[in-house]
Amino acid sequence: MNEDVAVKVGKYEFNSRLFVGTGKYDTFELMRDSLAASGTELVTFVVRRVNIDKPDEESLLDYVDREKYTWLPNTAGCKTVDEVVRTAYLSREAAKSDLIKVEVIPDPETLLPDVVGSIEATKVLADEGFTVMTYTTGDPIIAGKLIDAGAAAVMPLASPIGSGQGFVDYTYINIIIKRYGGVVPIVVDAGLGVPSDAAQAMELGADAVLINTAIAKANNPIKMAQAMKLGVEAGRMAFLAGRMEKKQFASASTPTEGMVK
């Protein structure tokens, strides 16, 4: 890790290439300990209405130490550009930060991003001075348009949110990384299930991954967070090491000269 550079999102820098979500944990304590085990430096969460009838409910922020983690508010649940922009303004005030993850997700069955809306929301918010990280599909054309709209990071999904399927087909994410990997960070987000998925993303050349369900819904989230940390590190190290060429046919590892006949 000493030979690597930090991943830069706008003016923000992170040495850990594992970003973590805060949803679906059984308890705040478990979430807090899982975040610590993951070694993450960037944690994401969302604004929701306060329950006026139960105002004493514990606050998530009591468990996400601002000294240790950069806060990344997201717009999960927003279906339209208008909702995303409203949520972003609320989040900016609540977090006192311009960092925002834009998710425009109108369809509850697929949780696919509305890419047209995402481009629009990205432009509106980037023009207002937000540092926008945009959740998207694995479409390189959309990735290019998001960057033109001002996205500080592009976050293509590996597979459906919360599905743990890992990569279904990384053909096009590969192209996004090759075309835009040097322009803005490419952060694989959604659907990663096990550390080998995270390692695979990093081996392809992704700059980082964002993981939530795979950790929160593991039998032992703290242990899984630790495993994900190692998976991301291994994958990144392999990418920097430069993999061997894949060959169609066998190629002996041992010389045939000097064999006793």
Binding site: R49, V50, N74, A76, G162
Partner: peptide
Amino acid sequence: EIVRFVGGG
């Protein structure tokens, strides 16, 4: 609208 942060991805 009165909001605060909760867990989510």
